[in-house]
Simulated scan of single mutants.
Amino acid sequence: MRTNNTYLQARCKRLTARRGPLRALVAVEHSIITAIWHMLTDNLPYHDLGGTYFAQRDPERATRRAITALNQLGCTVTLNPIQAAA
């Protein structure tokens, strides 16, 4: 993982936690090959989704995951939503 805040790095971190480092590496390699195939087939440049793609895709799930992680560390969590500026 030599790049920061990229979709592939986020994917690798998520998969490493569930499957282990070697399976995550193979899955990320497959993602890269698939992206290259689409780039060559459609004649399009690579567009990175960003490192926050998974959190933006389902923010409630990301919130639950963070709360669960804090609870496992022995912290209680109270959520106070940020109010939008008028």
Rank of each mutant, 00 (worst) to 15 (best):
R2C: 02
T3F: 11
T3I: 01
N4K: 01
N4S: 09
N5T: 04
N5M: 00
T6N: 06
T6G: 12
Y7D: 07
Y7V: 02
L8D: 06
L8R: 07
L8P: 10
A10L: 06
K13H: 05
R14T: 10
R14K: 13
L15N: 12
T16V: 00
A17P: 02
R18T: 15
R18M: 10
R18Q: 14
R19P: 07
G20E: 10
G20Y: 09
P21R: 02
R23C: 08
A24Y: 10
A24W: 03
L25N: 12
V26L: 02
V26R: 12
V26F: 08
A27I: 05
V28P: 11
V28A: 13
V28E: 11
E29L: 03
E29H: 01
H30Q: 12
H30Y: 08
H30I: 07
I33H: 13
I33A: 02
T34E: 12
T34I: 00
T34A: 15
A35W: 03
A35L: 03
I36G: 01
W37L: 03
W37A: 11
H38D: 09
M39F: 03
M39N: 01
M39Y: 08
M39C: 15
D42A: 04
N43G: 04
L44E: 06
L44V: 00
L44G: 02
P45S: 09
P45M: 00
H47V: 09
D48L: 01
L49F: 10
L49P: 02
G50D: 01
T52K: 15
T52Q: 14
Y53N: 11
A55K: 05
R57A: 14
R57H: 14
E60F: 04
E60V: 04
E60T: 06
A62D: 08
T63G: 05
T63A: 09
R64K: 13
R65S: 13
R65P: 08
R65G: 04
R65V: 09
I67G: 10
I67M: 13
I67A: 09
A69S: 08
N71R: 04
Q72N: 13
L73Y: 05
L73C: 05
G74S: 06
G74Y: 00
C75L: 15
C75P: 01
T76W: 07
T76V: 10
V77G: 05
V77Q: 00
V77A: 05
V77Y: 13
V77D: 04
V77K: 01
L79M: 04
N80D: 08
N80R: 02
N80V: 15
N80S: 01
P81L: 01
P81A: 01
Q83V: 15
Q83G: 06
Q83N: 11
A84L: 09
A84D: 10
A85E: 15
A86M: 00
